[in-house]
Design a protein around this nucleic acid. Structure first.
Lengths: 212, 212
DNA sequence: AGTTTCGGTGTACGGATGTTCACTGAAATG
DNA sequence: CATTTCAGTGAACATCCGTACACCGAAACT
């Protein structure tokens, strides 16, 4: 019965590396990355503590790997967002896409939100850089919309910063709600939609009032 | 020379209690409250570890006391903000007051921002409740402005939530900048002012567009 | 003046943690 | 087939942690 499965050594290594990342994501939800012990991760994965060092030199290095992994999925989200850049429906769609992604990758979002402000210094810095990059990408995407042509790059930067901030806050709000309560989440989503609408309308009017 | 100074026992107790709170605020900046050890606090204060229990039953209880202390100063800020509720200058003044308070009570703001998302569950919950209360107070204050009369209470809540969120984010941004750089802080303040202006103008227009 | 209260002391303990080191055995290499 | 590579093992260690316990001495109380 035993099909010949060619499990190479590097495949095995990658598998336990991923298992470490997954376990760390779950365990750090309770304690934060800083309060996460190398031994508890090893126990959860099913390896001996010292084997951890075959994959990461420290918990901090593990954290940076988790930042990379989390922002890889965030970038997928930005691709979805970029696809339907319709000015009429962009707000509702964006919030919906954000909500869906938070729901599906709750662990990653919780990790980023938590370590962004409270994490180990190196991890915190890595997140800030990724978030700043994310913000710049969003700004250039928005700049392509025809009605944004008169905007200065500085104003676009401010707007992108505001939108990313609102995203982070909305993600935090969704995360705060218990996982199995779609009604609460829907309320958060509705609030976020209204707020983003306030922001966009305000930006447009403030902009036009500056033109004259 | 030795003036008769009547240091009562309760005064002494209160003094070391305050010393514990101060030390905890400083030390938790590195590790977070969760990573703060009872022993390190005791050492910083100059008492023996077990003496800690004369004041707090646990680090968690210490954390909740710190939340109370931090929001006491936050409430003072709201009182300042309430004093000059002038519609023309409210945004610039609010941001200025926020910036000044963040500068003067940096430790408290850092503590709140950090533990709000990453802290021990009980501390996190205490912060959420205080922040929600703060938001409601702000909503009723804003509701008193004459031009806000047509607004529904629900819309006021959404607006207050947005403003508090922006405040938290701005405080985080100021904190992220190194303490001795007034130029960076001024840039953050300018960005925050523009963003709040976007929000308020947007809110007004969206509101009026709903009236008709 | 005698007694109680109570913040702070000092010792001691069991348990968890990060890291070291020498090792094993199977996959990879040649 | 002989050799090398390397993810994972297991014991040992020094260190830090929270907490229990008996104790002290001066302020507070009666």
């Amino acid at each position: 019965m035993q099909e010949q499965r060619a499990v190479t050594r590097s495949e095995r290594k990658e598998a336990t590396r991923q298992a470490i990342l997954d376990a760390a994501l779950v365990l750090s939800a309770d304690t934060g990355l800083g309060g996460l012990s190398l031994r508890s991760v090893a126990k959860a994965v099913g390896i001996v503590p010292t084997a951890f060092y075959r994959h990461f030199a420290s918990i901090e290095e593990l954290g940076i790997a988790l930042v990379d992994e989390a922002f890889a999925s965030l970038r997928k989200m930005l691709r979805d967002l970029r696809r339907d850049m319709d000015v009429q429906r962009v707000i509702d769609d964006s919030v919906a896409i954000l909500a869906r992604n938070v729901r599906e990758r709750r662990g990653h979002f919780m990790f980023i939100a938590r370590e962004r402000v409270g994490g180990l210094p190196a991890v915190r810095e890595a997140i800030r850089q990724e978030l700043a990059l994310f913000e710049r990408e969003l700004a250039t995407d928005v700049a392509r919309l025809p009605e944004m042509q008169p905007w200065t790059t500085e104003d676009l930067r401010v707007l992108a910063n505001l939108i990313v901030g609102a995203m982070v806050e909305t993600a935090e709000a969704i995360m705060t709600a218990p996982p199995g309560r779609p009604d609460i989440e829907r309320e958060v989503v509705r609030t976020a939609e209204r707020q983003l609408r306030m922001v966009v309308i305000g930006a447009a009017n403030w902009q036009s009032s500056r033109d004259d």
